[in-house]
Each structure stands twice: as C-alpha cells, then as structure tokens.
Write a protein that binds this DNA or RNA. Structure first.
Lengths: 169, 169
DNA sequence: ATGAGTGCAAAGGCTTTGCATTAGG
DNA sequence: CCTAATGCAAAGCCTTTGCACTCAT
C-alpha cells in the first residue's frame, strides 16, 4: 500500500510557511509535524529522531548511517520512517553514484542546495549556491527541458571529484 | 576481486583517441576493444551485444531493460559485463531517482550530456548541451567546488520533471 | 476502545558468487 | 595449453512485509 502512495509523491508546495528556510530548530519540528498531520500521521519519537539526525548531519545519510547513528531505532522502522516522511514531503531520497540511497530533508524545510560527490571516499557534501548562481542554473535548466517538451519541476547539480581531505593523501 | 578493482575506477583519459566523439559505429567497437585490452579483457560477443545496445538506445538503460532487450545474455552475465565495462571505463553507472541503477556508455566514447528524469514514468532522457551552455555550467561548477577545497573532475546536471508523454495524460 | 506505530522475524527481490564448462589467444 | 568468459544455481544482502504488542487520542 505504501507503494502506491509513494508513487504519488510530488513536491509539497509551501502554503503559509514560506519563510522557513531560516526556521529555528524547534520550528523545523513543528513544520514536520504539520506535514505529517496532512497525511494523518503522527510525529513520534522515532520519526523525530530521524528528522533530528538528518537536520543536524549537514549531508545526506544512507540507511547505514542512520542505523549506526540511532541504534535504538530498528532498521525496519527506519525504513518505514523514511518512507513515511518521504510521502509527507519532509524527506527526499537522492541517489549517489554508489549503490546506496541517501536521504536528506526536503528543500522546503531547509534550502535549495547541490552536492559535491567525492569519488575517493564516497562522501557527499552539501553546497548552497548564491542566488545569482541559482538564477543562471534555473534558466539553463529550463532551456534544456523546453527543447524536449519536458516540464522541469526541479533540478540537481552534482559535482564529481575529490574532497579536500582526499587530496591531502 | 572485482570489488577491489571497481574501487579503483577512475576516469579513463583519452590518449591517442581524442576525437572519437563522432566515431562511426565500427570505430566505437574498436575503441571499446582497446579499453578492454588495457585491463586484459576480451571483447566477447556478449559484451559486444551490451555495448551495441547501449550505443543505440540513446538513453541510459537499467538491468531490466538490458535483460529484456538481450534475452540470450543471462542476467548474471549482464551484471558481470557491465561491471567489467565499467572497470574498463567504457560504461558509466548513473543513479536515477527511482531505485534502479542505469548504465550508459562513458562520455569518452560518446559525448558529454545531461539527463531529464521523468518523475511520472521514470524515463531518463539524454540531452546534449550547447558549448555555450556547457562553458557556463563548468565555470559555475568550478566555482562551487573551489569554495569547499573540492577538486572537480566532472559534473552531472539532472532535470527533474515530467516528460512530454506524461504531460498529455 | 480504536487505529496508528513499532519490533522482531520471516519473506522478497535484485545482485553477486562458486564452480564446472567452453572458448579465445 | 592456459586463462578469461559464461551459465546455471546457490548464496548474499538490503529492503519490505506480516503479525502481535504498545501507545496515543
């Protein structure tokens, strides 16, 4: 059943919560609660733990990362939490270049950003573009899409290379 | 053992084969053979079939796509072919937004391009950027990376949205 | 009390591997 | 001849599910 629901995932449009980009910590949780309530789900301790972890990690986390960081939340529950949070539009699943899916808070709850993928260590680093940068990227993306009759709703720009730490070796 | 080798994957630098972007069909296969020989592997019929398929598909293919298109190549062999071709730098694995990995020929053998990911049907469409476009993206990517002491080697720009076919419904 | 949420263990599904056979150099 | 390449079937691994128990409203 979750399957069908997940298939319906679409961007959650901000309504009266437009300026939460700089929400404080508590506001984030309140907002998540609202998102969950929209789909008749509760913001339980287990879910809070997952959201809290994603909010403070500063980078997308894999299931392993999560299971390791919150040992008292069983993997099966972690999977379910992530799935539910995804349906609620709170969490977004991204695909790194390795075989592991990563999860991060939706940009509605944080801010738009891109990723730097380290080929050496697999690390994923978040980077926030300047508005100038973003304006340009958006324009380019729209142009690319239009040529194919494609309707763009968002984009992802990943930079592949080697992180500072891996260059030292 | 393949594991260790895969961990060593790095971009294959073109040597005396710089201008193969417009290689004819046969030249592609010859080039693939060279890449395979570099790692002491043969360009067998099964591998040729996979490369041929990827070359003519015009879009990244999942294992299912491949298994379906080349029924006489067992899945286990397809997996091994893709893995080997990846090590040889002939094939690149990309991650779509769904759970299935897709495979495409490395840009060394084709040309640099980006992807349009349809949220509705999961389809991945290749789009080739103009050189102007690409120049700008590269510059922006370098800028993003530099801020983090990251050394960029390549980039991927994915546009998420709905393809023309899915908008008709 | 009633339905959602959670844990544990079992089931599933896709990938990888072992091993014996075939083929290419 | 010798090592790579293949097929098939078995093994692995991550993810999903079933079911009973707990918790919140």
């Amino acid at each position: 059943m979750i399957k069908e629901i997940v298939a319906m995932i679409r961007p959650v449009h901000r309504e009266s919560h437009d300026a939460h980009v700089d929400s404080s910590h508590d506001e984030l949780h309140e907002l998540v609660e609202v998102h969950l309530h929209r789909i008749d789900q509760r913001y339980t301790p287990g879910r809070q733990a997952v959201v809290e972890l994603l909010a403070t990690s500063g980078r997308p986390l894999s299931i392993s990362d999560i299971a390791h960081a919150i040992p008292d939340v069983p993997r099966s529950s972690a999977y379910r939490h992530l799935s539910d949070l995804q349906v609620a539009g709170v969490v977004r699943r991204i695909a790194a270049n390795d075989e592991f899916a990563r999860f991060e808070l939706a940009e509605d709850l944080t801010h738009h950003h891109h990723h730097l993928l380290c080929s050496s260590c697999g690390r994923v680093i978040d980077v926030t573009p300047t508005s100038d940068f973003e304006r340009t990227v958006s324009a380019m993306v729209d142009e690319l899409a239009r040529q194919q009759g494609f309707r763009a709703t968002s984009h992802a720009l990943d930079v592949i290379g080697h992180c500072a730490a891996c260059q030292e070796t």
